[in-house]
Design a protein around this nucleic acid. Structure first.
Lengths: 157, 157
DNA sequence: AGCAAGTAGTTACAATTGCAACCATTGCCG
DNA sequence: CGGCAATGGTTGCAATTGTAACTACTTGCT
């Protein structure tokens, strides 16, 4: 650790990282993701993309890979790879659409269900502990802010 | 696009991704980061880590690499690599501490300053447009929520 | 029917990142 | 002083990720 430099006074035309929202979002998001990943990665041998695919399919069975990609905001290559490894570990079963044989139909296997029902509470528990730093009002507020910002960010693309 | 499945009703013990805060944080953060990166990456040939190092040093000159890492929440390898390429592009000058010859002393070159003064307004402009989706009150609220959550997330590590 | 254009999904390859091991230097303690 | 733990920083290697090109199949148009 080093001697403290005196902080330059903030000026509105200068950027300082620790007041810059995109930066703070990124730090927070990375911190949270890594915390969670540590929790289930080692214990269940699940990567983040795998976990997302599982979570989507647990809720919406029989989606195709692109449907999963849409719902999870992952790109289709990431989904493809996650699906590969979930198939390899027998946590997913894949069939194909009768009328459109390009489309896969994905569904959790019993093993996949089982992993899901064990991991989901961990994830939810983590979220609860995180959010317990906020009051109910603040939580609702955060909820809304995230929605508004995401919508705006997406339309700014 | 596919026919809509009817949404299963949410139950509190089941996780659905689009209500899960860590997931939403991650989607928002990625969307925002990619939007910004597109803006300066191509135009200035700057990666995100490089940009962060630049921003820290613009504000706090003469830090060492580990100081930069601390201030920017990057790890030291990432800083080392960003510093390498910033040195190669002559946007940074490096000297070494007289009393501790392990420590580097990093500072923007004139070219670095120049890049910074051109990129910073872009970044700030993006932030403003993003945040203009929120009222002043909401902005303050977001600000506070991010601080609280980050602190909590870090202590949960 | 037949072909062009579009979509689902995979693969190959390059770029990024993360981790561990590694020097060099300094600080500490006997 | 001598040696050993700790710190600053870099490097090499493996794992992850992104991009583009590709195959397979379907759709729409003529």
């Amino acid at each position: 650790m080093r001697k403290n430099k005196t902080s330059p006074s903030p000026r509105s035309d200068r950027l300082h990282l620790d007041r810059f929202i995109p930066y703070r979002l990124s730090v927070l998001s990375n911190t949270v993701s890594m915390n969670i990943a540590r929790a289930y990665a080692r214990e269940f041998d699940l990567s983040i993309p795998e976990w997302r695919v599982l979570a989507v399919l647990a809720r919406y069975p029989d989606l195709s890979a692109v449907d999963v990609a849409e719902r999870s905001a992952m790109d289709k290559v990431a989904v493809s790879r996650a699906v590969q490894s979930l198939l390899a570990s027998k946590r997913l079963v894949r069939s194909y659409d009768k009328v459109d044989r390009r489309r896969s139909v994905l569904r959790l296997s019993a093993a996949g269900q089982s992993v899901y029902t064990r991991v989901a509470p961990l994830a939810l528990g983590y979220e609860q502990r995180l959010m317990s730093a906020l009051s109910a009002t603040e939580r609702r507020s955060l909820d809304r802010l995230l929605s508004v910002l995401l919508e705006r960010a997406q339309q700014m693309k």
